[in-house]
Design a protein around this nucleic acid. Structure first.
Length: 402
DNA sequence: TAGGCCATCTGGTCCT
DNA sequence: AGGACCAGATGGCCTA
C-alpha cells in the first residue's frame, strides 16, 4: 500500500515530476493579480508581496483574503483532483476536443504572387515586439503568482508553525514531501498494528547522529511545553501538531485506544467506542463513549485524553516501560527511515559537499541551524532558536532530507 | 556588508 | 503566431 522506506518514497523520475500538474492551465488574465505593465527597471509592488516589511514582519500571507481560492465548502466535497479548479477569467479548455467536420470545405489561402502581405516599418515591428514582450511578462507574472498561491495553499495544509514564521518555497516543498511520507508511514504502521504485525516498520539500520535534520519533522516529535500546562486539566494548549503527546509523537496509544494528532485536530479512537474528534474550535463525539467514562468526557470535552497521558506528563515523562506506547515505535520508524534516506542520498549526491560554486546550503541540505555541530543540549531538553521554536532531546532527532 | 529570499524581466525553447 | 515553461539576470528587502 505504501512505500516502506524514505528512499523508495523519494525514488521519483522525470515522468512523475512532469510539468503536467493535472490542472488545465489558463490564467492569462488572473483575477488574483492586477495586470500592470511595467518596464524592466520598475519593480513596483502591486500590493502583493511575500517580502516582509518593517510594518509587517510576517511573510506568511501571499494574498489577502479577497484573493482566497474558492475551495469547496469542505474537503469531503472534493471527490477527484479535477473537482478542484481555480477560477480564472479565461475559460478552461474542455477535455474533449471538437472533432473537425471532414465535409466542411477548407478555407483557401492565397499563395505566391497572389498573396498580399503588408510590409511593416521597423518602428511597427519594434512596437509589435514590445507589445508581445509586455504580454509575455504579464503572463509570466501571473504564472508565478499562481505558483506562489499554490505554494501558499500548500503551506496552509502543513502542520502549523509559529505565527511569525513562514516556510520558504523550497522548505515548503521539502516539508510537504516529508510530511506526506510521514503520514503514509504512519498509516502503514497503524495498519500493521491493527493486523498484529508490529515489527514490520522497523528498518535495519544504525542510528547515527550529526546528520542533517529537518526542523519541521522535529516538530512532529517534540515534547510538550510544561509552561503551557494550565494546571486545571485543560490541555487545549497542547493542541497543534507541534505539541502533541508526552512521548513526542502525534500518536498516543493506550490500553483503551489511540489518539492521533494532526494539525489542530485530535482524533480519539477508542477500543470500546467513544470516538471523538477535537479541534481548536470544538469537538464532536460519535458512537457510545463507554470506556473513558462520562466524568472525563464532561470534564474536558475539548480534548479528552486518557489517564496515561496525565500520568506520564505529571511524572516528568517517566513512562511505564511495561506499557506499549505505539508512538515510541513510530518515532523509531521515522528516525531510522530518514536516517537511511539521508545516508544513501548523501553518498551519491554530488551536491553534498562543495561542488563548484554550489554547496549544501544552496540546495537546502543543511539546515538553518547547524545541528551537526551542536553537541551539547540543554539539560531541560528545551532549546530556543530564533526562527523556529524547538524542543528536542539529543536522541530524538529525526533525519530527513530530499 | 554579505548572503538569502523574493519578484520581475527577459530571451530561448517547445508545443499547439 | 502565440502561449507555457524555463532559467538566467537584476534589484529590493531583510537579517546576521
Amino acid at each position: 500500500m505504501f512505500s516502506t522506506s524514505f528512499e523508495e518514497f523519494c525514488d521519483f523520475n522525470d515522468s512523475i515530476c512532469s510539468n503536467d500538474s493535472g490542472f488545465e492551465r489558463s490564467y492569462t488574465d488572473s483575477l488574483a493579480t492586477p495586470t500592470i505593465n511595467t518596464p524592466k527597471s520598475d519593480t513596483i509592488d502591486h500590493g502583493i508581496s511575500l517580502t516582509p516589511t518593517k510594518d509587517n514582519p510576517v511573510r506568511r500571507k501571499l494574498f489577502t483574503d479577497d484573493f482566497a481560492y474558492p475551495f469547496p465548502n469542505s474537503v469531503g466535497d472534493i471527490k477527484t483532483f479535477e473537482d478542484f479548479q481555480p477560477i480564472t477569467s479565461t475559460p478552461i479548455k474542455g477535455k474533449d476536443k471538437k472533432l473537425k467536420d471532414p465535409n466542411k470545405p477548407k478555407r483557401k489561402y492565397a499563395n505566391g504572387k497572389n498573396r498580399v502581405t503588408r510590409s511593416k516599418s521597423p518602428t511597427q515591428i519594434m512596437k509589435i515586439k514590445r507589445n508581445r514582450r509586455i504580454k509575455a511578462n504579464d503572463r509570466e507574472r501571473n504564472r508565478m503568482h499562481m505558483l506562489n498561491e499554490a505554494l501558499d495553499r500548500l503551506r496552509c495544509v502543513l502542520p502549523t508553525f509559529p505565527e511569525d514564521t513562514k516556510l520558504t518555497k523550497i522548505e515548503t516543498l521539502r516539508f510537504a514531501h516529508n510530511y506526506i511520507f510521514a503520514l503514509s508511514q504512519t498509516l502503514e504502521a497503524l495498519d500493521n498494528i491493527n493486523s498484529g504485525q508490529t515489527n514490520n516498520y522497523n528498518l535495519s539500520c544504525e542510528l547515527t547522529e550529526s546528520k542533517p535534520n529537518k526542523d519541521a519533522f522535529r516538530e512532529i516529535f517534540l515534547l510538550p511545553d510544561k509552561t503551557e500546562d494550565k494546571g486545571d486539566g485543560s490541555y487545549r494548549n497542547f493542541q497543534g501538531f507541534s505539541k502533541p503527546f508526552p512521548n513526542g509523537s502525534n500518536f498516543f496509544q493506550t490500553s483503551e485506544g489511540v489518539l492521533i494528532n494532526v494539525g489542530n485536530v485530535t482524533v480519539s479512537v477508542n477500543n470500546k467506542g467513544g470516538n471523538c474528534i477535537t479541534s481548536t474550535t470544538g469537538s464532536g463525539f460519535f458512537t457510545n463513549p463507554s470506556s473513558y467514562g462520562d466524568d472525563i468526557l464532561t470534564q474536558n470535552c475539548y480534548n479528552p485524553r486518557p489517564q496515561e497521558f496525565y500520568n506520564c506528563y505529571n511524572n516528568n515523562l517517566d513512562v511505564d516501560s511495561t506499557k506499549e506506547y505505539f508512538n515510541e515505535k513510530n518515532y523509531a520508524m521515522f528516525k531510522n527511515a530518514f536516517d537511511v534516506a539521508a545516508k544513501s542520498k548523501y553518498e551519491n549526491d554530488p551536491y553534498n559537499s562543495n561542488y563548484g560554486n554550489y554547496n549544501n546550503q544552496m540546495y537546502g541540505y543543511n539546515q538553518r541551524f547547524d545541528y551537526a555541530h551542536e553537541t551539547s543540549f540543554p539539560q531541560n531538553l528545551h532549546y530556543e532558536e530564533q526562527r523556529y521554536r524547538h524542543y528536542y532531546r539529543n536522541q530524538s532527532v529525526v533525519n530527513a532530507k530530499i
